[in-house]
Design a protein around this nucleic acid. Sequence first.
DNA 1: CATGAATGAGAGTTCATTCAT
DNA 2: GATGAATGAACTCTCATTCAT
Lengths: 210, 210, 210, 210
Amino acid sequence: MTVQDRDAFQSEGRAAEVYRKAAEIILQKGYDATSVSDIAEALGITKAGLYHYIHGKTQLLFDIMQYGLNELDREVAQPAMKIKDPEARLRFMVAMHARIVTRGHGAVTILVDEARALTPAQNRKVTRKKREYFDFLRATLQEMKDARKLRDVDLTVATFSLLGMINWLSRWYRAEGALNEQQVAQAIVDIALNGLIRPAAGGGRSLRAV
Amino acid sequence: MTVQDRDAFQSEGRAAEVYRKAAEIILQKGYDATSVSDIAEALGITKAGLYHYIHGKTQLLFDIMQYGLNELDREVAQPAMKIKDPEARLRFMVAMHARIVTRGHGAVTILVDEARALTPAQNRKVTRKKREYFDFLRATLQEMKDARKLRDVDLTVATFSLLGMINWLSRWYRAEGALNEQQVAQAIVDIALNGLIRPAAGGGRSLRAV
Amino acid sequence: MTVQDRDAFQSEGRAAEVYRKAAEIILQKGYDATSVSDIAEALGITKAGLYHYIHGKTQLLFDIMQYGLNELDREVAQPAMKIKDPEARLRFMVAMHARIVTRGHGAVTILVDEARALTPAQNRKVTRKKREYFDFLRATLQEMKDARKLRDVDLTVATFSLLGMINWLSRWYRAEGALNEQQVAQAIVDIALNGLIRPAAGGGRSLRAV
Amino acid sequence: MTVQDRDAFQSEGRAAEVYRKAAEIILQKGYDATSVSDIAEALGITKAGLYHYIHGKTQLLFDIMQYGLNELDREVAQPAMKIKDPEARLRFMVAMHARIVTRGHGAVTILVDEARALTPAQNRKVTRKKREYFDFLRATLQEMKDARKLRDVDLTVATFSLLGMINWLSRWYRAEGALNEQQVAQAIVDIALNGLIRPAAGGGRSLRAV
DNA sequence: CATGAATGAGAGTTCATTCAT
DNA sequence: GATGAATGAACTCTCATTCAT
């Protein structure tokens, strides 16, 4: 059933439109503040009509989240697994994840922000999947650490910091702004990997110049 | 009236308890999902009784946010202004802000997460204040840039990335975890400023060792 | 239209199946608690599809009741009319009616339990028919009374008591129980006619012994 | 909580009025067909206002049923337990139970008719209690049987038949009718115990033969 | 200070029914 | 025959808020 709905989300047709519109509105107003009527209205149908496509408000949320998880898996995790070099893999993941957030389809952001509204069972499922993603990202950092390509940082803090930077994007990035999606994604990768401050010039650089 | 309430939040006495308890619950369940009854119940009084202390649910939220803004101003911005060196100031701000988030009094997190629920007028006020804080942080980066202490990064992306890392703390940091507040704060400062990867300089560092 | 439907109920074919399934479910869950979807689902068709066979939920109920009335008339009242001796007739009616209830096709029970849900017009029709049946049963008791075969009991109370005992069967009789339909029917006839207590031994019996 | 509500039903005050009015309307229209608005309207308050007194429609039903069970226990079972002679006890139970039904307060009838609407947990509780009452009644018949005061009847059928006669009263007895509550109760006791037909008195026969 | 009672508005959801295909 | 889509009406229930006491 859930699988069906997730497919509906991705497929073409009216059902897909329903799920996409719902995601859009929930992204905008928040899940709690979005009424089923709001969604119906935006679709130009009645509440009762909407119920042909959804199986309750919570299930709708869950289905959107499933789609978000899917998006991450399909577009970030799966391709990343094919990248051998951990640093290249990290760069790809951060950039790609950032782009999914900035392109604003909503599902990924809702996935992150509204987990509280799920039923315990749904929450468990979603949390497990999110955890898997987190672990994969962390494992990549671990590989880099093992290859002595990482500074001596706490990996958990590092992973969450990456995710914080990325997820925060949904709160401030506007497509109309000065930087486009790709530029922002690259900027984030750069900041995350290289930090903000110029390496102590007296040290490394001048020496290197020698 | 608002000023009164903000004072109430900070002062001792029953009113302060009300505001603190409210913040705690809202932090936990989210503003929309928190009913006035929930708060009253947690305080051991009736809904009607609670209305002696608050002036509506939205106003309560606004007051908590005001307190959060205040907290930031009092504990981060004001002291920071006394720090001349921009890098030291930045380090202080990130660390201190992070500690306010991790110590978990809630107001700052609510401030960030629930702005949507405010009335337009309240929202404007809060947004203006948040903007001031953002600008101050960004100005600090600008100073560093001018002093050539910053790598060539987009300052807006950088500022938001810092805030993303910090604000994300409220989603994952648990006091019971392996790192205490101070350690996490320092880890974040370190990651944000120095980045994750070891400077490519096989040159620099090893030479320094020489 | 109604006649058509009643026939449909009894006849073979898809329509009959629809009515029988509907009766079964309504008997089980009650009319109000049974949704048109429930019935459609049980039949493996859609709601809209079901509407090819029925003319509204109330009409469906009415048709089932008509069938129940018919059942009573055909299997109890009509044959009973051919029995001259009132006591024999009474025994037949009680036993036969009881068996219709216990065999559990549902229509008779629904007829009795769900009259409130009918439209006033339908209700009047059904009530009139039920009244006819009641009157026929009561008239049989009257005949017995006239023949001095009845104890001095209020005939109305007696008639309703008979019907109460019989109709109550649907609430407790289970085919899997210790007694089969026939045994239960006979037990009821026996109890209703002869009562529970052993006739005062000092009276009749000793006389008989003389 | 439940106990509280049951008390509320019996006590004086607004809460009692609410429960009594609710019972009255549910008795009249049936539980499913009674909306919460119906009850509120009959009380002259709004739906929301009614919810100060009840804890959901199902709980309301359950509470009414609890009261019904209580009524039976208090007015029938408890006093009956003090009656040594089983026949006297049976006569008392049937008569008293019948009067509770005819006096029409509703709770007992609702208790019997609407069990399907309860939650499984509630249903179990109610069923257990009803079972206890049934067993007590049946045990009384058993005592009579042991004392050879009973004809040779199946005790289960007998007990259910008694209950059928009594419970059916609620469907037909009207206070305005020819017989008052007491007369009907006595008539039922008489019919149930002595049956309808004049004993084929060995007495009678031989006399007739003379 | 605090309460119980009450309310209007609106929430999510279900339902019987219709109709173009 | 049968369906998917749609609807208006109704339903149970919750909520923020008020007010007399």
